[in-house]
C-alpha cells in the first residue's frame, strides 16, 4: 500500500501523543528502573553494577515466599471472580429483559464511581470488631462476643473479588452478547442438560472474554496495594508491600526496582502459562 504524504503526516499527528505518553511515562521510567535494579554499592559506598538485587529475591525465602503467596492468592481471586461473574453475566445478557440490561450494568458500575479507598473503608466499617455486622450479631444473640472478621486471608480475598468483579463481568458480557440463543436451544434439543450446555456451548463461546477478563483481574489483583494492606492486615503480606517497603521504608531503591521488574516478569510468565494451558493466543484474546 502506498501512503500519500498528507496521510503520513496525519498518521504522525495522531500517533505522537500516544508515543509521547508511552515514551515519557512508561518506557523512560522503566529504563531508569532497570538501570537502578542492576545498581548497588560496594563496601566503600561506591556505585557498582551487580546482580545482587535479583539474587536477594531467590536467596531470601521471605521475598519469594511473599511472591508465591501473592501469585497463588491472585490466581484464587481470579478463579472466584470468574465463577461469580459467569452467572451474573448470563443473567444480565440472557435472562433480564433488554430494557433492564442497561440498569443492571450501571448497578455493577456504580461502586466504581467511588475511590477504592472509600470502598475498602466501607467494608472495614461493616466487618471490624465494633462494626455493623458484629453489632447485629450481638444484638440478636448469635455470638457472645464480637468476632474479628478483618485482617485474614478470606476477608482479603473477598475484598479483592469485590474490587475486580466489574473487570471480569464486562468482557464476559460482551462475549456472551454474540452468543445466539438458538445455539443453546439447539444443544438442548439435541439432548444436553444444563451442565453440558454450559460446558460445551457457553464456556467455549465466551472463552476470549473469560481470558481477557482473567488477565485484567489477575494483573490488577497482583498489583493491588490498598486492599491487601488494609483488609489483610499484618499477616497477609502482599508482594507490592515488599516493593513499597524497599522504596519507602528501607530507601533501597535498587532492591525495589529489582522487585518491580521481577513482578513484571513473573506475572507475564504466569499469564503466558495460562494462555498455553487454555490453548489460546494473546492476539486472539485482544481482538
Amino acid at each position: 500500500m502506498v501512503i500519500s504524504k498528507s496521510s503520513k503526516a496525519a498518521l504522525w499527528l495522531f500517533l505522537t501523543p500516544v508515543l509521547c505518553w508511552l515514551l515519557l511515562l512508561i518506557v523512560l521510567p522503566h529504563i531508569d528502573l532497570l538501570r537502578m535494579s542492576f545498581g548497588g554499592e560496594n563496601d566503600y559506598g561506591e556505585h557498582v553494577w551487580t546482580l545482587q538485587n535479583y539474587r536477594n529475591f531467590f536467596t531470601e525465602p521471605i521475598y519469594w515466599n511473599t511472591f508465591l503467596r501473592t501469585a497463588i492468592f491472585s490466581i484464587i481471586t481470579t478463579i472466584i471472580t470468574f465463577l461469580l461473574a459467569m452467572p451474573v453475566a448470563f443473567y444480565i445478557v440472557k435472562v433480564v429483559r433488554p430494557r433492564f440490561q442497561g440498569a443492571m450494568v450501571l448497578m455493577l458500575l456504580l461502586p466504581f464511581w467511588v475511590s477504592e479507598l472509600v470502598r475498602v473503608y466501607g467494608w472495614m466499617i461493616l466487618l471490624r470488631e465494633s462494626g455493623v455486622i458484629n453489632h447485629f450479631l450481638l444484638k440478636f444473640g448469635v455470638v457472645d462476643r464480637p468476632v474479628e472478621m478483618l485482617y485474614n486471608d478470606a476477608t482479603m480475598i473477598m475484598g479483592l473479588v469485590y474490587t475486580s468483579m466489574l473487570f471480569m463481568v464486562v468482557p464476559i458480557i460482551s462475549a456472551m452478547e454474540s452468543l445466539d440463543d438458538s445455539l443453546i436451544e439447539a444443544a438442548h434439543d439435541l439432548g444436553s442438560g444444563k451442565l453440558v450446555i454450559w460446558y460445551k456451548i457457553i464456556l467455549p463461546h465466551c472463552k476470549p472474554g473469560i481470558t481477557s477478563g482473567s488477565i485484567v483481574v489477575f494483573m490488577l489483583v497482583l498489583g493491588n496495594y490498598l486492599t491487601p494492606n488494609l483488609m489483610g492486615g499484618k499477616n497477609s503480606l502482599w508482594f507490592t508491600e515488599q516493593i513499597y517497603n524497599q522504596f519507602i521504608a528501607s530507601f533501597n531503591w535498587n532492591q525495589g526496582a529489582a522487585f518491580g521488574f521481577l513482578l513484571l516478569l513473573l506475572s507475564s510468565l504466569i499469564i503466558w502459562i495460562g494462555l498455553k494451558l487454555s490453548r489460546q493466543k494473546l492476539g486472539e484474546v485482544a481482538s
Binding site: 438458538s182 439447539a186 434439543d189 444436553s192 467455549p204 463461546h205
Partner: peptide, 20 residues
Amino acid sequence: VGPNLRPVNLVFQHLALFPM
C-alpha cells in the same frame, strides 16, 4: 417432557450449527 428428552429434533431457522 423437556426438549432434550423428546424424540423430536428441530432444524433451526438460522441452523444454529456450533461454530466452535
